Simulated assay, not measured.
Amino acid sequence: DAGESGTLLRFITGMACLLPGETLITADSRNRQRPILPLLNALRDLGAGITQSPGSDGYPLKVNSGLSGGRTVIPGDVSSQFVSSLLIVSPGAADDVELVVMKPIVSSGYIDITLREMKRFGVTAERIPGDDYDVFRVPAGQRYQPADVDIPGDWSSVNTLLAASAILGREIKVSRMSADSNPGESKFVSILQKMGCSVNTGDGSVSVQKSGELRGVEVDMKDSPDSVLTLIAVALFARGTTVVKNISHLIHKESDRIQKVETELKKIGAHIETTADSITVTGMKQLYPAATESHNDHRLAMCLGLIKLRNRGMTVEDAGCVRKSFPEFWNFIRVIDICEEGEKCLEIP
């Protein structure tokens, strides 16, 4: 049972092809609504025996042991997790695997992370860029080997604390952060810098402090999906307009994040407009206390929590869903909230 985790659902479906016997896979209701058919079809192309149950959502999935290898084509504009799942299991196929990923490829940096970690554990895969598609080739007969790993901080979580720093004018420093660990999400600090924050990223740490009035920006966040709603929260308190582009894949997350953030922010009077692949926010508007909902989406809950720092009186229903990725979020937010403006109030070793 993958529960609410889309990452687990997609990864374990691929891994089940290498397990002996038959594996049954299920998930909660929202997770069963999220796209998985492109991954199933690609695995079938590579010789996997996967059966979907009768009914509207096809769960539970029945996955039989065996992966023969070969060639498959998969769209790149839905989820990079499909590609990562296929890459991770390809060394266990009987023959070489060639994976063709059609462009545009969303969250491409996460695929690079997958390739890097595969190499760390003794498996090589070749990425051949092209105009219309990228080709990935994984030789058969490779085995993962043990390796020592130093786990860095999680940029998606830390970015929410840096956002709180920008919103309230507190100085925050977090150690054990490496931009190379997640190039897509670590770009958030450069966005804050463009918005008017002072940023220091030396000595394996990152610190942020608002150095003046925040200003709106226009950014492409195709490769930074987990930080989009974090930026939207900051944008509400910036002068001018912020435009976030190339984020159509956010409709496939724990909620339809484009639609749900528009719904919730309009409840508090925010000036927000959305399209199928963009969110536009005009900041410095009067906000109102209102009851808002997280829709069981941890990123949306944290976005609303950040806004609550400056919009006293608003409430967030099911705020506890942040436990999926950042269970200490609300504790950190309370610490940041009680600090004085301009004060260095939080340092995480």
Rank of each mutant, 00 (worst) to 15 (best):
Q193K: 15
Q193C: 14
Q193V: 07
M195N: 03
S198M: 15
N200Q: 15
N200G: 14
N200L: 13
N200R: 13
G202R: 15
G204E: 07
G204K: 11
G204M: 11
G204R: 12
V208N: 02
V208K: 04
V208H: 01
Q209A: 14
K210A: 12
S211Q: 12
S211F: 11
E213A: 10
L214A: 01
R215D: 08
G216E: 06
V217Y: 05
E218G: 14
E218L: 13
V219S: 02
V219Y: 04
M221G: 00
D223N: 13
D223V: 04
S224R: 10
S224W: 04
S224D: 11
P225C: 08
P225D: 06
P225Y: 06
P225E: 01
D226R: 01
S227W: 01
S227Y: 02
V228K: 03
V228E: 02
L229Y: 00
L229D: 00
I232M: 08
V234R: 00
V234T: 03
A235Q: 01
F237T: 02
F237E: 03
A238G: 08
A238F: 03
R239D: 13
G240Y: 03
G240H: 09
G240P: 05
T242R: 07
T242Y: 03
T242P: 02
V243M: 13
V243D: 06
K245R: 15
N246C: 10
N246W: 07
N246Q: 11
I247E: 02
I247Y: 03
I247W: 01
S248W: 11
S248C: 14
H252G: 06
H252C: 06
H252I: 05
H252E: 04
E254A: 06
S255T: 09
S255M: 07
D256Y: 00
R257D: 06
I258S: 00
Q259E: 12
K260T: 11
V261Q: 02
V261Y: 00
V261S: 05
V261D: 03
V261E: 00
E262T: 09
T263R: 12
E264D: 07
L265K: 03
L265N: 09
K266H: 11
I268T: 01
I268H: 01
G269F: 07
A270S: 09
A270G: 05
A270D: 09
H271L: 15
H271D: 15
I272R: 00
E273C: 13
T274F: 02
T274Q: 08
